[in-house]
């Protein structure tokens, strides 16, 4: 079904497009008018029903989630949502979630585990929200809990990066069996602006920082942090249909594994990451 599709991964993308440098990819990933998490949910799935709230404090609109059908298969989808127009963006904090957003995500994942649905996480955030309320309600604690619980969640998890993947805020939805990135998306430990201001005390040296951080999909594939790079055809419809097929194929594959193997593989996936001398 997705025969031509596998030609793009897992060994890298074909040389169809000229390689962009990291800064250009960053600009594309942040471009105004780029698709958001909800666009993906609406176009990839059918019968989407949004489920709100973390049952503890509030509903964080920076992360949306719910149940839907992906080519017939019931799935749980969770996505960072940066928002459409300016008011919507402000309401959603430009996709930077508070602790309640991560707690909602975990609640929906536990629900998915209970009903044996695979989880699709769509990541697009500059980072977790940074502010007084977020700190007071335990941003660090909420993300830590997600990392821990996702590692042993007894149902397949696939994370797809569609734009920015900023630090712990992205990782909070990316402890997955397999992580894919669109070709114009980035994933890094710190924003290039933050890196530049620490390193050179000059936030304008963003281009240099982008290269240093190795944040592009091809760099991350080499480091073993992601499994697949998804090319972005001009026609968005084509992108969605390719993704629909590929994701459902992956879910079938992961669903076929015994749960212990699934969890062990996920643990090993992260266990092997890191470079040190011995």
């Amino acid at each position: 079904m997705a025969a031509e599709y596998t030609a793009y991964g897992p060994n890298g993308r074909p040389n169809q497009t000229a390689p962009f440098n990291a800064y250009q990819i960053l600009q594309k990933a942040r471009k105004n008018g780029r698709f958001t998490g909800l666009d993906f949910i609406r176009n990839l799935t059918t019968e989407f029903m949004e489920l709100h709230g973390d049952r503890r404090f509030a509903d964080d609109p920076a992360i949306v989630g719910g149940v839907a059908r992906l080519l017939g298969m019931p799935v749980t989808v969770i996505a960072h949502e940066k928002g459409g127009d300016l008011n919507d963006k402000a309401r959603r904090n430009f996709g930077s979630a508070h602790p309640e957003g991560y707690r909602k995500a975990l609640r929906l994942m536990k629900q998915a585990e209970k009903f044996h649905r695979p989880v699709l996480c769509i990541v697009d955030t500059a980072g977790a929200f940074c502010g007084i309320g977020a700190e007071a309600r335990g941003e660090g604690s909420a993300i830590a809990e997600n990392l821990m619980e996702m590692m042993t969640l007894k149902t397949p998890i696939l994370s797809l990066f569609i734009g920015e993947g900023g630090s712990g805020g992205a990782l909070g939805l990316a402890v997955a069996d397999t992580v894919w990135m669109l070709e114009n998306s980035v994933y890094s430990v710190i924003s290039p602006e933050g890196c530049a201001s620490i390193l050179w005390k000059d936030a304008s040296k963003v281009k240099e920082a982008c290269e240093c951080l190795h944040m592009t999909p091809s760099d991350l594939l080499k480091l073993g942090v992601i499994e697949r790079i998804i090319p972005e055809p001009e026609d968005r419809g084509e992108l969605y249909s390719l993704l629909r097929e590929a994701i459902s194929e992956e879910f079938y594959k992961l669903n076929a594994l015994p749960l212990e193997d699934l969890c062990r593989n996920r643990y090993q996936r992260f266990r092997k990451l890191g470079v040190y001398g011995e």
Binding site: S167, G168, L171, S188, V189, L213, H214, L223, V225
Partner: peptide, 8 residues
């Protein structure tokens, strides 16, 4: 870089 994020 990203490798330290993965340590989390």
């Amino acid at each position: 870089g990203i490798l330290s994020l993965m340590q989390m």
